[in-house]
Design a protein around this nucleic acid. Structure first.
Length: 173
DNA sequence: GAATAGATCCGC
DNA sequence: CGGATCTATTCA
């Protein structure tokens, strides 16, 4: 296993979203294999939080790649994103689903709200540098399992549904 | 200050 | 399909 570095996240967001599939998310004592992601790209993406420009909330998306972006949605659920691309270009990948593998029985978690709840991710974990943090980062296995994935419109949004920017592992070979 | 919509989930 | 529940943003 080796930790993903800044340059991994500096690539185009769609590339990063696809490449994150099959990687391992590490948070405290939890480890999960990422199986589902979504891309939110720039001010021209109407579904992106940064679509209306730079605000206090979206500022992190304009920052350097490899930082976490955590926000509260619908008053109840946190969503975990990872900032991508170069500085001053607002983009991020939403992590929607993982397979927990820290327990003996692998457990699927589908949905960003449930994911954060299970891992214990909250507002406190916003703007964390995943490149340096010693408890919150992404790793890649030396030999990654091969799999097929599907592309679909993003979930839960009313705009930008013409874009197939959701990526999900379909099956392992 | 008030109104509103929102990258969700669960139960009916 | 609607309710829970709160915050960022917009409008007055």
């Amino acid at each position: 296993m080796h930790r993903l570095k800044r340059d991994f996240f500096e690539n185009p967001t769609i590339t990063v979203a696809k490449e994150l599939l099959g990687k391992t998310l590490v948070f405290n004592k939890h480890q999960g294999l990422i199986i589902e992601t979504e891309a939110y790209i720039g001010e021209n993406d109407p579904a992106c939080h940064a679509a209306k420009g730079r605000t206090k909330r979206t500022e992190i998306m304009y920052g350097e790649a490899g930082y976490s972006y955590v926000y509260l949605i619908y008053g109840m659920y946190y969503c975990l994103n990872i900032v991508t691309e170069e500085k001053n270009f607002p983009a991020a990948v939403l992590v929607r689903g993982i397979i927990l593998n820290h327990t003996k029985d692998a457990k699927d978690i589908n949905g960003p709200g449930k994911l954060c709840k299970h891992l214990g991710i909250t507002q406190e974990h916003n703007k964390i540098n995943l490149i340096n943090s010693n408890f919150f980062y992404i790793t890649a296995p030396k030999k990654q399992q091969t799999f097929s994935y599907i592309e679909t419109p993003r979930i839960g949004i009313k705009v930008g549904i013409d874009k197939l920017w959701r990526f999900k592992i379909h099956s392992f070979y």
